[in-house]
C-alpha cells in the first residue's frame, strides 16, 4: 500500500512540476494559461493527498477555476479590443536556463535537508485546535472564524480593496475597450448555453448552501461556497443571461461590502459582550458564526464576480457637474 501511494505521489508531483514548467516556458500565452489551469487542477489533487480537503476545494474553485477564467477573459478582451503590439520575448539563453536548473537542484536538496530537520518537530498545532472548546467541528473553519478571526477579517478587506481598486481604474465616462468589450454576445450565445446557465443557477445555489452549512463540521465553508456561487454568477453575466448591474448602484455596492460590514458588526458584538473584538459570546457563538458565514458567502461571490466580469462602461455625467 505504501509503495502504491509513493508511486502515485511521485507521479502527481512530477506532473505538477511539468505542468508548471510548460506554463512558465511557453511563449504562447494562451497555451501558458491552459497549462496553468492544468497545474491548478493537479495542485488540488496534491492538497487531497496531503489530507487538506478544504484547501483542495478552494484551489479547484479559485486557483484553477477562477484565476484561469480571469486570465482567459483578459486575453480574449485584449485580442478583441484593439491592435496590441506583439510581445518580443527575450531570446533563449542556454546559460540562463542552466543556472536556473542548477538553482532548482540546489533548492530541492536544501528542501530535502529541511524536511529531515522538520521530521523531528512535535505534532503541530492540531491537538491544540482540537483541544480548545469551540462551536465548530471542522478545525479549519474553527481556525478561520473562531481563533484567527483577524486574518479572515483582513482577507475580506483585501478582497473588497481589490474590487474598489479595479473600479477606480475606470473612472466614469472613460471609454475602455479592453475592460468593457462584451464577450459572449450575438450568435455564439445559442439557446443551449442560455438553457445550461439557467439550469445551473438552482444547482449552484444548492451546492453553495450545502458547502456553507457543511463547513461547520466537515470540509466546506464560506470561501468554497462563495466561489461556487461566484462561478454561476460569472457565467450568467458573461453570457448576458442577466444584465450587468452598474457598480454605481447602492445595491451593488452593498452586496460587495456586506461581508466586511458583517464582520465588523460581529467584532463589535464580541467587544460588547466579552470585552474583546471577535471574541464570540459563548451563548450565541455557533449561530453567530453561521450567520456571518452566510453573509460572507454572498459577499465573496459578489466580489469575485465583480473582479472577473469587470466594470461596465458608465457614460459620463452631463457636462461640467463632475468636480472630480
Amino acid at each position: 500500500m505504501d509503495a502504491i501511494s509513493l508511486v502515485v505521489d511521485v507521479l502527481l508531483v512530477g506532473m505538477t512540476v511539468l505542468a508548471a514548467l510548460a506554463a512558465v516556458a511557453s511563449r504562447d500565452v494562451f497555451r501558458a494559461v491552459a497549462f496553468f489551469i492544468v497545474f491548478g487542477a493537479l495542485m488540488a489533487l496534491i492538497w487531497l493527498r496531503l489530507s487538506a480537503p478544504d484547501v483542495a476545494l478552494a484551489e479547484a474553485a479559485v486557483g484553477a477555476g477562477l484565476t484561469g477564467v480571469l486570465m482567459l477573459e483578459t486575453l480574449g478582451r485584449i485580442r478583441r479590443a484593439s491592435d496590441v503590439e506583439p510581445v518580443r520575448e527575450r531570446p533563449r539563453h542556454p546559460a540562463f536556463a542552466a543556472a536556473g536548473a542548477l538553482a532548482l537542484v540546489g533548492a530541492s536538496a536544501a528542501a530535502a535537508a529541511v524536511a529531515m530537520v522538520l521530521e523531528r518537530a512535535p505534532e503541530g498545532l492540531a491537538p491544540l485546535v482540537a483541544g480548545t472548546p469551540g462551536p465548530m467541528e471542522n478545525p479549519v473553519t474553527a481556525v478561520l472564524l473562531d481563533f484567527r478571526g483577524y486574518d479572515t477579517l483582513l482577507e475580506i478587506a483585501v478582497l473588497l480593496l481589490a474590487v474598489i481598486a479595479t473600479m477606480a481604474l475606470y473612472p466614469r465616462g472613460r471609454p475602455s475597450p479592453a475592460a468593457t468589450t462584451p464577450l459572449t454576445r450575438g450568435p455564439e450565445r445559442g439557446m443551449l448555453l442560455g438553457w445550461f446557465v439557467r439550469m445551473l443557477l438552482p444547482v449552484g445555489i444548492l451546492v453553495a448552501g450545502y458547502l456553507w452549512w457543511q463547513g461547520a463540521d466537515a470540509p466546506g465553508g464560506a470561501f468554497q461556497g462563495g466561489t461556487v456561487l461566484a462561478a454561476v454568477l460569472i457565467l450568467m453575466l458573461v453570457t448576458a443571461v442577466v444584465e450587468l448591474p452598474s457598480p454605481r448602484w447602492l445595491v451593488t455596492r452593498l452586496a460587495l461590502a456586506v461581508g466586511l460590514l458583517a464582520f465588523l458588526a460581529v467584532a463589535a458584538i464580541g467587544l460588547w459582550a466579552s470585552g474583546a473584538p471577535l471574541d464570540h459570546p459563548s451563548f450565541a457563538a455557533k449561530p453567530l458564526i453561521l450567520a456571518l458565514e452566510a453573509v460572507l458567502t454572498l459577499a465573496i461571490a459578489a466580489c469575485l464576480a465583480a473582479l472577473v466580469v469587470g466594470v461596465p462602461h458608465v457614460p459620463p455625467r452631463r457636462p461640467s457637474r463632475d468636480g472630480a
Binding site: L50, A52, V62, V129, V140, V143, L144, A162
Partner: peptide, 21 residues
C-alpha cells in the same frame, strides 16, 4: 493535515486571486 497552515493556505489562495484580478 494541521488546520492552522490549512487556514493560512486558504487565506493565501483568496489573497492571490484578489491580487491577480
Amino acid at each position: 493535515a494541521d488546520p492552522v497552515p490549512q487556514a493560512l493556505a486558504l487565506t493565501g489562495i483568496v489573497i492571490s486571486v484578489s491580487i491577480t484580478a
